[in-house]
Write a protein that binds this DNA or RNA. Structure first.
Lengths: 207, 207
DNA sequence: CATCAATTATGACTGTAGTCATTCTTAGTC
DNA sequence: GACTAAGAATGACTACAGTCATAATTGATG
């Protein structure tokens, strides 16, 4: 029983972790993230507080797991989109905009995740952050090589700027109590604006 | 003694508040913001904990006072710049870039303030935030009317986008342990890039 | 000066995240 | 089955922000 098969110990460990995660998100959705204390979670998951912190060094660590699901999906979608030939800026933009749909689906959790991201609580060395960044950068380099974005600028810089606008738009949308507009429309407006430039249009090119 | 002259009570109140502020920032600078607890501050300022919270409902509120000094100066500078005639984009940009010098002067405190700002701990209804926002918007509307920025876009949107990039650049700079570049140069690069647009330059306009 | 109402100060208390020395459980070995 | 060492679970404990009922101080008034 020591080799291929997973030991009872391993199974139990996995079970406990799963239970904590499951119960946590149930409570988060039911009562909100702030209102759900670690004590509540432990109570509901029937573990001692110390056990919780064995698995998740910080309460916020729980969100890493949502992030993982999310970035898995994002990678899948980008790969899929790339199968149909190299992307245009508009296609790439819309693909990334769709990912923001997760925030629309679950505003409560979304809010917290966006906040945590702002606070830098997600370690950038973290797998999830690294993968998400990698994904964006890859697409930008591709767009540069296709002549869709300025090639004379460090892709990391373009990535960062677009990322700023993307992230801030989400935060703003999450913060407005009853958002009067679609997150995705707003993202499209702003990202387009930044790519086109904020300077007055030259008279010639009537856009 | 009840009218024009300030009563002893008023004086004491002012003194206490000043003392708490002074002592706080001394400790913040000496030991860092996180490491300085409210208890430490109370100890050093020789007040009870409750007194501290009478004056500053949250620990972070202390930073509002730094913000005030800062925004006063910013308003002064902008007014001064406007006296010499309406601004160009480049002038306005550089004026705002200079304000970021505060962050360079005191990285420790700057870091915390930028973080607090990200976290939305500064109430946007707050005087300081309102004034800072107002200042930016005013300049943008002016630049639009001078044909320096696209006039066909909601100024609030332009403001928000430029604000994003401005703020994120500062955060990034503060986060890099020993920044290898000048904050102000980096701000100039990025803001210019956003205004010019990230899209490939049209062959015609050799910029 | 004595009294009173209003303001300000106090510190014990609460709620929360996170720690750590100790106890319990399990897999492997005889 | 009995023993053992490694791994996992436990809950009392700490550190910190923030609250609140109570006490002390102050300025005004008779």
């Amino acid at each position: 029983m020591t080799e291929l098969e997973v030991s009872r110990r391993e199974r139990k460990k996995e079970e406990t972790k799963e239970r904590i995660l499951r119960v946590s998100f149930e409570l988060f959705r039911k009562h909100g993230v702030e209102a759900t204390t670690v004590d509540h979670i432990c109570e509901a998951a029937d573990v001692a507080k110390g056990t919780f912190f064995n698995y998740f060094p910080h309460k916020e660590e729980l969100f890493g797991y949502l992030g993982e699901v999310w970035v898995d999906e994002a990678e899948r979608r980008v790969a899929e989109a790339l199968e149909h030939g190299p992307p245009t800026w508009a296609q790439a933009r819309d693909t990334f905009i769709e990912f923001a749909g997760y925030y629309e689906e679950d505003r409560n959790l979304g809010k917290y995740m966006a906040q945590e991201w702002s606070r830098g609580r997600f370690d950038p060395a973290d797998e999830v952050c690294r993968r998400w960044d990698e994904l964006g950068k890859r697409v930008i380099v591709l767009l540069q090589s296709r002549g869709e974005l300025r090639a004379d600028v460090d892709p990391a810089l373009i990535h960062r700027i677009l990322g700023d606008v993307y992230h801030d738009t989400i935060v703003m949308w999450l913060e407005s109590p009853e958002p009067p507009f679609s997150l995705q429309d707003e993202l499209r407006r702003r990202l387009t604006l930044v790519v086109e430039g904020l300077a007055r249009r030259k008279p010639k090119e009537g856009r």
